[in-house]
Write a protein that binds this DNA or RNA. Structure first.
Length: 395
DNA sequence: TCTGGGGTCCTAGGACCC
DNA sequence: TCTGGGGTCCTAGGACCC
C-alpha cells in the first residue's frame, strides 16, 4: 500500500470548536438601539402597547403578564436577572431595566449571517439553535488559536456581534470551555487541563445535567464535576440507570466521542400558546376553539412551507396548576392541512378530562414524512401519475 | 412574582406479530 | 393447551436544551 492518509485510528486529535453568541437577542437589539448600550436590557414578553418612558422604551416595572426573560444584557444580569425567569420576578429585581419584545425574524436573519460567515472558513458545522454552533476545525489548516480568532473576527465583521469560543478534542468539553471566559472569550483546552479547569465546575455546568439530576447528585454530596468523576461508576449506574449513570461517569472524565451532526431531519413541528388568563373548558369554549383552530392553521403553514406531512398529531394541555398532559393520535394517511389537523386534535381532545382551567394549548405534528417522498412512493393522484404497464389503446 | 415556545431523547407498558 | 422470547409500533410522561 502506498504511503499517504492512514486508514483509521492514527488520525490526528479532533479540534472541535463551540461558538456561542454573547447575550444574543439583547446584543442584536443593541445594534438597533445603540443608545441602550451599558444599560440593563431584557428581552421577553409579547409585543404590546403599554406605558413607555420619554424615549419610547418600556420599563420592566410597568410589565404585567406571563412572559419570561428570553435574554438579559450583562448589566441586567448584575441584578440577578436570568433567562427563563418570570418577567414579574425580573421586574422586582431590576424595575428600571428596559424591556424589549423579541423580534425572532431579525434574530434568525442575523443567525444565518454569522453561520454563513463561519462556514466560509470551516464548512463542517453542527447547528445547535439560533445562537450557537459546533465547528470541526480538525481538517482546517492553521494553528488552533489563530483559527478561532479568525472565526470570531468573521462573526464580528458580518454581524457586529461578539461571541465566545471553546476549542477542545470533543463537543462536551468545548461546550464547557466556551462558557469559561464569556463574553468575547476564547478558551482552548486539552485533555490534560480537565483536572484543573473542568473538575472545579459544578455538575450542572455539563450539558445534560439539569435541575433534577443536580439535586439528586447534591443529595449524595456530589457537587462538582471532580466529585462526580471520583464517584463509583457502579453506584452511578445503580442510582441513575444503565444509560444515564454510565454517561455521567464518562462526562465527568471529559470523554465524548459524538460526531458532529451536520444535517438533520426534524422529528416534530409544533405550535403552542399560553393564554393571557386561564380559560375554562366550558365557559370559554368559543375562545378555546378559536385558539386551537388558529394553532392548526399556523402548524399547517409550517408543515407546508417546510414540505412535511404528519403521520401523527398530538395535543398538549397545561392546566392552571401547571400540570401538563399530552394525547397523541396516529393517522392512517399523513396530513398537513388545517382541517385534518383539527379533526385529529378533536379526537385527542375527547380523551382528556376537562375539569379545570387551562393556561396553555398546543398542537404537534409528529412521525414526519417528506411530502415529496410520500408522493413518489404512493403516486398520489393528481400530482404524480402511475406509470402505465400497458401500451395505450389504438384509437 | 409563579413558571414562553420550540425542540430532542429516554423510559416504559401494552398491542400485535412471528 | 400452554409457554417463550424478540421486534416494532403506539401512547404518555418527563428531563433537558436553546
Amino acid at each position: 500500500m502506498p504511503s499517504g492518509e492512514p486508514l483509521l485510528a492514527m488520525s490526528r486529535p479532533r479540534r472541535i470548536a463551540h461558538l456561542d453568541m454573547d447575550a444574543y437577542f439583547a446584543s442584536v437589539e443593541l445594534l438597533r438601539y445603540p443608545e441602550l448600550k451599558g444599560q440593563p436590557v431584557v428581552i421577553g414578553g409579547r409585543r404590546r402597547t403599554t406605558a413607555t418612558d420619554t424615549q419610547g422604551f418600556q420599563r420592566l416595572r410597568s410589565y404585567a403578564g406571563r412572559g419570561v426573560v428570553t435574554t438579559a444584557t450583562y448589566e441586567a444580569r448584575a441584578f440577578g436577572v436570568r433567562s427563563g425567569m418570570g418577567l414579574m420576578k425580573a421586574a422586582a429585581l431590576a424595575p428600571d431595566a428596559i424591556l424589549l419584545p423579541g423580534d425572532y425574524e431579525t434574530y434568525s436573519r442575523v443567525s444565518r449571517t454569522f453561520k454563513s460567515a463561519v462556514a466560509e472558513l470551516a464548512p463542517c458545522i453542527e447547528d445547535r439553535g439560533i445562537d450557537e454552533i459546533f465547528v470541526d476545525l480538525t481538517e482546517v489548516p492553521g494553528e488552533t488559536r489563530d483559527l478561532a480568532q479568525r472565526l470570531k473576527e468573521a462573526v464580528r465583521q458580518s454581524t457586529g456581534l461578539s461571541c465566545s469560543i471553546g476549542v477542545t478534542p470533543n463537543k462536551l468539553l468545548s461546550k464547557l470551555a466556551s462558557e469559561l471566559q464569556k463574553p468575547d472569550g476564547l478558551t482552548i483546552l486539552g485533555l490534560e487541563d480537565i483536572p484543573t479547569r473542568i473538575w472545579p465546575l459544578p455538575c450542572a455546568a455539563i450539558n445534560g445535567i439539569g435541575p433534577k439530576a443536580t439535586a439528586r447528585l447534591a443529595g449524595f454530596q456530589i457537587h462538582t464535576i471532580g466529585e462526580l468523576a471520583k464517584a463509583d461508576p457502579d453506584f452511578l449506574i445503580e442510582t441513575f440507570g444503565q444509560n444515564y449513570g454510565a454517561w455521567l461517569h464518562e462526562a465527568a472524565h471529559g470523554r465524548d466521542a459524538r460526531p458532529l451532526a451536520v444535517s438533520r431531519e426534524p422529528k416534530s413541528i409544533s405550535r403552542e400558546t399560553t393564554f393571557e388568563r386561564d380559560l375554562h373548558p366550558r365557559q370559554d369554549r368559543e375562545e378555546l376553539t378559536r385558539i386551537l383552530l388558529d394553532l392548526c392553521e399556523r402548524l399547517a403553514q409550517d408543515l407546508t412551507r417546510k414540505g412535511y406531512l404528519a403521520r401523527s398529531v398530538g395535543i398538549k394541555l397545561r392546566f392552571d396548576n401547571f400540570s401538563t398532559i399530552t394525547r397523541d393520535h396516529a393517522l392512517q394517511v399523513p396530513v398537513a392541512d388545517p382541517a385534518s389537523l383539527r379533526d385529529a386534535a378533536r379526537d385527542s381532545l375527547k380523551r382528556v378530562p376537562l375539569d379545570r382551567k387551562l393556561r396553555l394549548l398546543g398542537i404537534r405534528a409528529g412521525s414526519l414524512v417528506k411530502e415529496v417522498d410520500y408522493r413518489l412512493l404512493h403516486a398520489v393522484p393528481g400530482r404524480l401519475a402511475e406509470p402505465s404497464l400497458f401500451p395505450a389503446l389504438e384509437p
